[in-house]
Simulated scan of single mutants.
Amino acid sequence: MKFKNVAATGAVFVTVALALSACSSSSTSGSSTSAATSTASAGVVSTLDSSLKGTITAGGSSAQANAETAWTAAYVAQVAGVTVNYDKSQGSGGGVTNWLAGSYDFAGSDSPLKADQQTSSQTICGTGGGLNLPVYLDGVAIIYNLPGVTSLNLSSATIAKIFNLSITTWNDPAIAADNPGVTLPSTTITTVTRSDGSGTTQNFTNFLSAVDPTDWTYPASNTWPIAGTSAQKGGSGVVQAVGAGAGTIGYADHSAIGTATAATVNKVAFSQDAATAAFTAGATTVPTTTGDLSQKFDYSKLTGATIYPIPLISYQIVCTTFKDPAQAALTKSYVGYVASTVGQAIAAKNAGSAPIPDSMLTQIQTSLATVK
């Protein structure tokens, strides 16, 4: 099936945000005249202080790119004194590296901090370390370019064998068995992967390791473990390479794939509802420190016709204690806006992501309240 790039103009983002904030302004009490309520009366509310001034510097996850553009445009429309700079070119790996170096106020990452990174974060964040806050829910899309084949289903086992390079042609019996009645060419398969440290790769290899350890014998990792693929930087690089060559297949966050053709996985197409169903069915909080909300999927529960099998959760990672209280206030304000009902609605409309459930948003707001 084809997905359409749902990124829109800043005017649309602002319209969505202000329309929803208008719904709640009459129901807010006890706030100063410089504060603006940013979410609707129903759901998780974040109150913005429009007197804030300064610059938030962040970067990382390219999966979050469209959502970050939307969030930033809507946020600064209400808090005009704040500038938000998010560098999507870094990828999740670069985002975490720069954050640990003290260059970013928060990192965008499609996977939570690893144990050694959590330990390292105490250097910039104090003994509490960092908090992984899940603010973006989407899915890893399997995209392909095979002229004449407009609909393709791939089972988990077939995906594992394609990406471990043991299936090398498109008319392989395993692919044919997944697609009865479809005429498949003998074209050689070119597998396109990420060259940079990638949370999308981490999520994809988490899936492969869990669902087919017989065929996928490599550890889950944010770096691609197999030589011999067409390695590209960033999700956009993967999408461009797949689009440029017949017989290609790759993986990318679904919001980044534009008009690329995506396969169904175990006969399930990506949708916002299917991603939400995956979160509800299989995600569990596995905290690394007090207030941390790292999530882990039980892939054995991600089955059935209404659950997308390769969900992707992306995080904004912040310090428990900032060295600069002013930056703490700015970052808490922005992340709190993102982790509100309106923030999630903006991402859903403009990036095609699935809203994080309100129950989790409430937990994020609680965690943010402890940040100093």
Results as ranks from 00 to 15, higher is better:
Ala174Met: 08
Trp71Met: 05
Ala274Asn: 15
Lys161Pro: 08
Thr362Arg: 11
Leu302Ser: 08
Gln117Pro: 10
Ser38Cys: 14
Ile143His: 08
Val371His: 09
Gln64His: 10
Thr362Val: 13
Ala278Cys: 05
Val44Gly: 03
Ile310Val: 15
Ser255Arg: 08
Ala241Gly: 01
Asn179Arg: 14
Lys4Asp: 14
Met1Ala: 15
Gly30Arg: 06
Ser156Pro: 06
Ala348Phe: 03
Ala263Cys: 07
Asp358Leu: 05
Ala262Met: 14
Gly95Lys: 11
Thr288Asn: 14
Asp178Asn: 10
Val182Lys: 13
Gly343Pro: 02
Gly54Arg: 01
Thr69Trp: 02
Thr33Tyr: 13
Gln118His: 07
Thr290Val: 12
Ala73Val: 03
Gly43Pro: 07
Ala328Thr: 08
Tyr251Lys: 14
Asn222Trp: 10
Val96Phe: 03
Ala241His: 03
Lys267Tyr: 06
Ala19Tyr: 05
Val12His: 08
Ala174Asp: 15
Ala77Ser: 14
Gly130Ala: 13
Gln117Met: 05
Pro213Glu: 02
Ala157Arg: 13
Ile159Glu: 10
Cys125Glu: 00
Ser236Cys: 00
Thr201Gln: 08
Asn5Lys: 15
Asp324Gly: 03
Ala348Asn: 09
Cys23Ser: 11
Pro173Ala: 13
Asp253Lys: 05
Gly129His: 01
Asn203Val: 01
Thr303Pro: 06
